[in-house]
Design a binder for these strands. Structure first.
Length: 219
DNA sequence: GCGACAG
DNA sequence: ATCTTGTCGC
């Protein structure tokens, strides 16, 4: 058998992200009244990615549906290339949903990425659905001390790429545009969905993925 | 070359 | 992300 050359290089992947970033919509393209909010998260067991997608009613944040999907990971974790690792299993569990939410909250960056195409944006463009990036730590950009608000802009070389939002608990969340939404609306939605240290959609997706993980690890 | 670096 | 028990705090 001839040697199969790697189907990618970090450089090519970055160029692909640069191309993908051109399709990102920074304006609100979601229903005036949001009915359902979605959340996705991924857990791991060895070389298997276990993703979970959940749907909550926007008004009361009650869980109405949850799905899971697993895939062998074909990509290592490389900062800036997270989407290539989590996209397969994430897309799979989203396709199982009977109720398609109006928007998805994704754990990871949106455009707050070196090539303006983090996991949340990549997922949004592929789905053609609104997404918001909600990360627990920063990838790129800097913030200045919090002013008299609960958030401060995240800037990458003077360009606003997102915001650092302080939750009621005191935790800092990095919010950025994923796709089909404005930063202003994204901040409002994340605020609305956050009761503890993390938005409910992501917290529940994380919980569901973790539950599924132990089923696989401890039969 | 050095440091930073989502999950 | 994951490896891990009890423990300090709101």
């Amino acid at each position: 058998m001839p040697n199969l050359k790697p189907v990618f290089s970090i450089e090519k992947a970055h160029k692909a992200q640069l191309q993908l970033s051109k399709f990102i919509v920074f304006e609100d393209r979601l229903p005036k009244n949001i009915h359902f909010v979605g959340g996705v998260d991924t857990a791991y067991f060895k070389d298997v990615a276990i993703s979970a997608s959940v749907v909550l009613e926007f008004n009361n944040l009650n869980l109405v549906e949850a799905q899971v999907a697993t895939r062998k990971v074909a990509f290592p974790y490389i900062p800036t290339l997270l989407s290539f690792r989590e996209l397969p299993s994430t897309l799979a569990c989203i396709k199982k949903l009977k109720i398609m939410p109006d928007i998805f909250l994704v754990d990871g960056q949106g455009i707050a990425h070196p090539y303006r195409c983090g996991f949340a944006s990549h997922l949004g463009v592929v789905l053609g659905k609104p997404t918001i990036g909600v990360a627990k730590s920063r990838l790129t950009g800097d913030i200045e001390p919090f002013p008299n608000r609960d958030f401060t802009y995240l800037k990458d070389n003077n360009e606003v790429v997102g915001a650092a939002l302080r939750t009621p608990t005191g935790k800092t969340l990095y919010v950025s545009v994923g796709h089909m939404i404005s930063l202003e609306t994204a901040i409002k939605i994340v605020r609305h969905c956050t009761r503890g240290s993390i938005p409910e959609p992501i917290r529940l997706a994380h919980k569901r993925a973790t539950t599924e993980r132990r089923k696989i690890s401890k039969p």
